[in-house]
């Protein structure tokens, strides 16, 4: 059975606990080449779900399958770097001691984009002239696009993006939307956490119940 027969992501009855707060159960599927947005109020657990899928937050119960493979087998589950994902957090996670280009090359080492492709993506995000800089020399919106550039440079078939538009103006948002569409056409899938409903893509709204 090839991986193409499976959805990019299957989540079933997933429950995670953050602090004393239990989130879930939640069930959904994301097909290959599609985008899905998790929306809902503040504190509802959108970011926690993304963290759990990325392997960065322990799962209490339920299943997570990425490209048909269970991520929760073994004592600790599959390590985050072995899940075939690329992850963009809500808070900035750029590494301040490396230039943006160096960071992109680092994450692209294992089956990610080539140097030319990284430059092309940087151009599409209006970052071409900034990739030699270190994070401290970028504005908030530029840093967010730089981190998205790093995320997209990796080889993961599933992109987990937590509030990727939060620091963007109209132009920035449009550029990111275009990039995500291109990545989907290339066979990647995108799961986003957004704080407001979105007409651009399929949406799953999380509620208290």
């Amino acid at each position: 059975m090839t991986q193409a027969n499976h959805p990019a992501l299957e989540v079933a009855d997933l429950i995670v606990i953050r602090g004393t707060h239990s989130i879930g159960p939640i069930t959904f599927q994301l097909s290959i080449g599609k985008q899905l947005a998790l929306t809902g109020g503040n504190g509802i657990g959108k970011s926690s779900m993304l963290l759990a899928i990325a392997g960065l937050l322990p799962v209490t119960s339920g299943t997570i399958r990425i490209s048909g493979e269970s991520m929760l087998s073994g004592s600790d589950g599959v390590e985050p770097w072995q899940r075939g994902i690329s992850w963009l957090g809500q808070e900035r996670g750029l590494w301040p001691h490396l230039s943006i280009e160096a960071q992109c090359r680092l994450v692209a080492r294992d089956g990610g984009k080539t140097a030319e492709q990284i430059v092309a993506v940087a151009q599409s995000l209006d970052m071409a002239e900034l990739i030699q800089r270190r994070p401290a020399a970028l504005s908030g919106g530029e840093a967010q696009r730089a981190e998205l550039l790093r995320t997209v440079s990796g080889g993961g078939a599933l992109l987990l993006l937590d509030e990727p538009f939060s620091a963007q103006n109209e132009d920035g948002r449009r550029r990111i939307e275009t990039l995500l569409e291109q990545e989907c056409q290339a066979g990647r899938s995108v799961l986003l956490a957004l704080h407001q409903t979105d007409s651009e893509r399929e949406t799953l709204t999380l509620t208290q119940n």
């Binding site: 963290l51 960065l56 770097w81 680092l106």
Partner: peptide, 24 residues
């Protein structure tokens, strides 16, 4: 910061440890 640490955990362990977290 947790966000930086989480990002580095998506790299291969040796790369994340010695290229990202150790210099930091």
């Amino acid at each position: 910061p947790l966000s930086e640490s989480n990002s580095s955990r998506l790299l291969a362990p040796v790369t994340g440890r010695w290229r990202v977290r150790f210099p930091r």
